[in-house]
């Protein structure tokens, strides 16, 4: 069944303390967008720390590659992947909207449940 036109939600719950778990969700989101899917990433739990301004620039999986987590965040936003950020997790990590990168929408738990029930597929990380 072709993926084109379908929707996918990727839930990212890992943060800066687990850099090796930060790339794949964004790689998949950009891939889905390139396949003409409606892709969204929901940052929750520690995942919201990836969005803190200035943080992603320092996460480089392959040393010396010049490709950082910021590269993938930028690519995802450019590919029109939607970023949703969990209000409760922001509170837990003492983060405000002003402290995270532009392009994120603040949402609550009920919004996530609504989205999960309406989206074609959900991936969890």
């Amino acid at each position: 069944m072709p993926a084109e036109g379908k929707s996918i939600l990727i839930i990212q719950s890992s943060g800066l303390r687990e850099p090796s778990r930060t790339y794949a969700p964004l790689y998949l989101a950009v891939s889905a967008a390139a396949m003409d899917m409606k892709a969204s990433v929901w940052f929750m739990m520690e995942g919201v720390t990836l969005l803190k301004k200035g943080a992603a620039e320092n996460v480089e999986l392959v040393s010396g590659s010049g490709v950082t987590l910021k590269t993938w965040l930028d690519r995802a936003l450019k590919a029109e992947v939607k970023f949703f950020v969990c209000a409760q997790a922001m509170e837990s990590e003492n983060l405000s909207l002003e402290e995270i990168i532009d392009g994120c929408e603040l949402r609550g738990a009920a919004s996530l449940i609504d989205m999960i029930m309406s989206i074609d597929k959900v991936l969890y990380f």
Binding site: Y27, V30, S31, A34, M35, V62, S65, V67, T71, A79
Partner: peptide, 11 residues
């Protein structure tokens, strides 16, 4: 087509 590398994915 879609191409994938370690540092890029796109159409």
């Amino acid at each position: 087509a879609i191409i994938e590398s370690g540092k890029y994915v796109g159409p």
